[in-house]
Amino acid sequence: MDEKPFETPYPGYDVLAKWDGPSWNDATRRVVADRLENVPPRRFLGEAEYRLLRSVIETILPQPERSEAARIPVEAFVDAMLWNNEGSGTRYADAPPPREAWRRGLAAIAAEAERRHGRSFETLTAEERHALLAAIDAGETDPAAWEGLHPRRFFRHVLLKEAVKIYYAHPLAWNEIGFGGPAAPRGYVRLGPDMRDPWEAEEVRPPQALEGAP
């Protein structure tokens, strides 16, 4: 496990600085304003489930550099997705519908924490939480706790996928990876390698070294 925190190559870049410029149209302004201003309240999950979800999210996408007010509240949008019972177009024949899958999956994570550590997931250290999720991804699980849910499929295709869909749809995430962000009606002029329009993020330092392929 590796806890070297993320550092953005693009400090100082802010897609929101383009808000009033030609890269943002009204539709985009309405959508992003809604996302930033109307963080959904918890409505679907129970309090304990929500606390657990938040702890899982902090393990999947840790944001130590951000204050509570500034962090991307991924769990709130997960809860809203479940509350609205939003579909993805696909229900795997051997998997329960989304609401049931999330409830069962979260309960299974809680049960794995109790089984391995005799404590709740939220009270584990960051290292322990990371190791526990890695074990779930590797299928080192107690079948009884998962009630027929496939651990890796839940972890990757339900939990991780939804978490990154929410996280990387947030302007703060666009900033940290140097994504150009909204770009209508103005798009881009310079398309070639190592070419950058003045309204794109400037790479101040190279991205952190990777330890080989993922």
């Binding site: 496990m1 996408l61 991780l160 990876i177 991205p207």
Partner: peptide
């Protein structure tokens, strides 16, 4: 791919998470 399109393929195929996921996404422009 746009950011969430790229990120979903990365996590669902490779299971990357934690700081390592954010560091991987830091290479988006490369």
């Amino acid at each position: 791919p746009l950011p969430t399109d790229f990120a979903t393929a990365l996590v669902s195929n490779e299971g990357v998470f934690g700081h390592r996921l954010r560091r991987w996404m830091g290479h988006y422009n490369h």
